[in-house]
Design a protein around this nucleic acid. Structure first.
Lengths: 81, 81, 81, 81
DNA sequence: CCGACAGCCAAAGGCC
DNA sequence: GGCCTTTGGCTGTCGG
């Protein structure tokens, strides 16, 4: 043991385990989100529409961020502070 | 103000905000995972293959979980502890 | 010849050829687009920034379309015309 | 108006609009291609395999073009017509 | 040549 | 249980 092969295998195993832990946490987040939708639904809200709203707001935010970045690019190109 | 309409709108807004916070955390997880793949890649591992490994192990875990659930069903059906 | 096998092969060949013609036209479009960027570059414009603008405008249009669709969803949900 | 700034902005706008028109045409080509695959699928052909064929033929064409170019290079180097 | 990005496809999850 | 929308991964393309 302790040869390069083994060392590499150990490293790989550690990477895989780190990823799997993170994937589990991520799945936990997904489950939490699902629960909120269920809770909202139980209070009479329509989950499908809510998903649309969330999706739309995400895109709008993304567009706004990009607009800001583009503006910054222009400012830099024009030598402004 | 304070009529049903407004109350519902406030509730909806709160739900949306909770979801958006959770979505952000989830995105953080995704980013962390991506970072681990990049780190592994920088040490000479192949990300694509690693993804295959993670995927395979997930399926195997799923199979094992199903087997456990089936065993549990049998135990219950037979009145065993 | 003239058996089913051959007929199917002929059909397939025709489909493939139609696709390849369309792919060529598509590539022509890509080349034209590339030329416009080059021409703009030759007049002092930054192609990378221009690409960002084009991309951003596309996203903005998409978001606007979605907003309209969501509004429509609300109107329907509220029984409005 | 009519200062350099405005002229440049107008030029940029025109370039952007030309690109957007071309992008739309390109999208039309993509849609046409997709339609052909759907039509082929409706007649029992497998789209995935067809894509492989198209891809392979493209590579082969590319190889042939490279060979031709190399041959041309040699001919020129040797002063042949 | 590499690294980033968009398009395409297959798979998963939610909804009816 | 089927439809269908969304997500994740892969491939091909483009610019640096």
């Amino acid at each position: 043991m302790s040869d390069g092969q083994t060392v590499a295998a150990d490293q790989l195993r550690l990477f895989i385990e780190r990823i799997e832990r993170l994937e589990e946490e991520k799945k936990g987040m997904s489950d939490d989100i699902k629960d909120v939708y269920l809770e909202a639904k139980s209070q009479g809200f329509d989950a499908k529409t809510m998903r649309k709203i969330v999706s739309l707001r995400k895109k709008e935010k993304h567009v706004r961020d990009e607009e800001d970045a583009l503006l910054e690019t222009y400012r830099n190109a024009l030598g402004l502070v």
